Amino acid sequence: MVRRAFLGWMGASVLSGTVMADEIKHPDIWLRDDQKEVFNTVLKKLDQIEKTVGYANFNILSFDEALKIAKNFSKIGAFSPSELAYIEEVFYTDPVIYGFYGKKTVEKLTSVVDEKEVVKIQGSGHYLFKGESQAALERIVKDIGKTVILTSGVRSVVKQLNLHLEKIRDEKGNITVATRSLVPPAYSYHTVGDFDVGKKGWGAQNFTAEFARTEEFWKLQKLAYISMRYTLGNGDGVRFEPWHVKIV
Rank of each mutant, 00 (worst) to 15 (best):
L7N: 15
G8V: 02
G8Y: 03
W9K: 02
G11F: 15
L15E: 11
G17D: 14
G17I: 06
I24D: 12
R32S: 15
D34H: 14
V38T: 15
T41H: 00
K44N: 12
D47S: 14
D47G: 06
Q48T: 00
Q48E: 00
Q48D: 00
N59F: 03
S62L: 08
D64R: 14
N72D: 14
S74Y: 04
F79N: 01
Y86N: 03
I87Y: 04
E88H: 08
E89P: 02
D94E: 10
F100M: 03
K104T: 06
V106F: 01
K108A: 14
D114S: 14
E115I: 13
K116E: 13
V118T: 06
G125N: 09
Y127D: 05
E132I: 11
S133C: 09
A136I: 15
A136C: 11
E138S: 13
V148W: 02
T151R: 11
V154T: 08
R155Q: 13
L165F: 00
L165W: 00
R169E: 14
K172H: 14
N174K: 08
V183M: 02
A186R: 08
V192Q: 07
G193T: 10
G201N: 10
G201I: 08
W202Q: 06
W202L: 11
Q205D: 10
A209L: 04
F211Q: 06
A212N: 05
E215C: 03
E216T: 14
K219W: 06
Q221D: 06
L223D: 09
L223C: 11
I226Q: 07
S227C: 12
S227D: 14
R239H: 10
P242E: 09
P242K: 11
V245N: 03
